[in-house]
Simulated assay, not measured.
Amino acid sequence: MAVAHLVQRDEGEAISMEGWSKERTLLAKLVQEEGAKITDVARELGKSRSTISLYVNGKYPESEELRETVRNYLRSIGTWEDEQDEAGQAPAVDYITSADELPFIETNDVKRMRYVLKKAATKHKFGIVAGDPGLGKTETLKKYLLTNPGSAIYIRCKSTHTVKSLLQELADALGLPDTGSANQLTRRIVKQLKRTPYFLIFDEADLLKSADKYEALRDIYDEAGNIGVALVGNLALAEMFLDFADMRPELKRLADRAPFHQRLQGPSREEVEQLLERVNLTSAARKVMIQIALNPRKGGLRNCVEILDVLLDMTKGEPITEEMVLHIGQINLTANA
């Protein structure tokens, strides 16, 4: 509904808001009357400062996408109230009751990661994806495997892996005998990959740590000659192969074979809001959940989803309060410490 209102610009000129959308009106009041800084608002909305400055002064054209972005932001800070129907009730929302119903959000990180996987697989190169825990790396890999059936071998790395046990796990995944020495295993694996090339994906690859394990993977890659390899892990992986590889020749040999790499940035506020859109959260609870999802030190997106998993089972679509989020969040962080 359009709202007629006057707001005062900094230089004293009154702006008529007649005909403005509710979204533009409330955001302008937030900036012009309540003192919110345009720079901060623009950052939260994922827009440039100039765009938001023009928008709150009525000089930037609206789109449904922009209105939705502003609306979600205003809702997250408790400024937006949904319109009520004639009976005085807010429109019914089909709230979800299980974390299994949470949507898979195509975040910018997901797109970056998919790009690396596609390029490494098709160009037969090494690809490296690194990011904080809880950014959805493993979930993205699962989606990739589902949409590319039979084309890839997935190995989840462990801190306990030796060179031989890593090769044994790869041999087993290829349907090969896992007996013999490391050299015998390597020859067996290379022979199979020459016959049937697969894209090799090593999740949590930062846990391998020592150069001899990465060298074993590089040897297989070089000798097979027709495969791509993806190393996916935490930021320690980026430090090894992107930041400090020049200081360690044994790592640089692999880094030189990895033209495709990405450091994941974490979700934007808008992406988290999309995830939470159908969760029945109070305004205060929604704000806390967004803070958790955006902060890797609070567990990031993974912790956000784990908290929701517990709370949705408890509430079955009933409102989730800030106190509930803080209580379960503290338990979850303690359990994972």
Rank of each mutant, 00 (worst) to 15 (best):
I290Q: 02
D82L: 09
M240W: 07
D178I: 13
V31N: 04
S283C: 13
R67T: 11
E86V: 14
K125Q: 07
S268G: 03
S16H: 11
Y95Q: 07
L26K: 00
T186V: 09
L176E: 10
K143V: 13
A245M: 10
H261F: 07
L167H: 08
D219Q: 11
A14Q: 12
H124R: 08
Y221H: 11
E23V: 08
S16C: 12
D212A: 11
D203C: 08
K125I: 01
W20C: 08
V41Q: 11
D203F: 10
T140R: 10
S98A: 12
D178T: 15
G46R: 06
I331K: 14
T147E: 13
A293S: 10
T160F: 04
P149R: 05
K142I: 15
V310Q: 14
D256R: 10
K137Y: 09
F202K: 00
T196E: 15
V93G: 11
P267H: 06
A92Q: 13
F244H: 13
A293W: 03
E215R: 02
T196Y: 13
N336H: 05
A337K: 13
N226Y: 14
E273N: 10
R114T: 04
I307C: 06
I307K: 02
L170T: 08
Q265T: 14
V272M: 04
Q84W: 10
G78M: 02
L326R: 06
R286I: 08
V93R: 14
P296D: 09
A90I: 11
G136Q: 06
L208D: 01
Y214R: 05
V129G: 03
E318T: 15
F202W: 07
G317H: 08
K298C: 05
E318Y: 15
N234Q: 15
I155S: 05
A284F: 11
R286Y: 05
K37E: 05
E18M: 02
L200R: 11
T25P: 07
L200E: 06
N108V: 14
